[in-house]
């Protein structure tokens, strides 16, 4: 079931889109903003709201890089793996980041459900390569030290919420 707020957010998108159906990506984004990812159940609910079939909506959901059809952690780290960051040795930082997070590769989520690490195409911050985004925040000129600081700060910020249930855990329940 979509919440009142989710319905309102979708409708708002419909108003500024060229047609109601054109709001489909926006609707997926709006629901993802509140739930963290798009489960099959969410997909069906949104499709019904937009008068589409779930399969039709899924063809859109799976096309766009930033719509998640699997559970993600509370924060998504997007490490740029495109050419300028590659030249500036992002791969070296990737190894450091994996160790720091205790995961073994892209696409994985930390045990506490706090971070998911994903690769990203060029973030348009090539003059500050290597670069990454955490959620909607951009970080450039990355070094091992600055990565440590960034991750630690997120952990401290979220510290008081650490016992709260993560979207990842919620997502698993829905499945």
């Amino acid at each position: 079931m979509l919440t009142q707020e989710e319905r309102a957010a979708i409708s708002e998108g419909c108003d500024s889109s060229p047609s109601a159906r054109a709001a489909a990506p926006h609707a997926l984004g709006a629901v993802q903003a509140s739930r963290g990812w798009i489960s099959d159940e969410s997909l069906s609910d949104i499709a019904e709201f937009l008068h589409m079939t779930p399969a039709e909506l899924d063809s859109i959901a799976t096309f766009y890089n930033r719509i998640y059809r699997s559970p993600v952690g509370r924060h998504v780290i997007l490490l740029c793996d495109s050419v300028s960051c590659w030249i500036m040795d992002y791969e070296y930082l990737l190894n450091h980041l994996l160790t720091k997070l205790g995961i073994s590769g892209f696409g994985e989520t930390t045990k506490d459900g706090m971070f998911t690490l994903l690769p990203s195409a060029c973030l348009g911050a090539c003059d500050h390569a290597p670069a990454m985004m955490v959620d909607r925040e951009l970080f450039g000129d990355l070094t091992r030290q600055s990565i440590d600081t960034i991750i630690d700060q997120y952990r401290i910020k979220d510290g008081d919420r650490r016992t709260a249930q993560s979207p990842l855990a919620t997502g698993r329940k829905e499945q």
Binding site: P18, R21, A24, P25, H26, G29, Y64, R66
Partner: peptide
């Protein structure tokens, strides 16, 4: 947008804008 290189292609962008 929700991210894909093709969104920057003129006609791909129009399809994206149409949802």
């Amino acid at each position: 947008s929700h991210g894909r290189y093709l969104c920057g292609e003129e006609t791909g962008l129009l399809n994206a804008l149409e949802g």
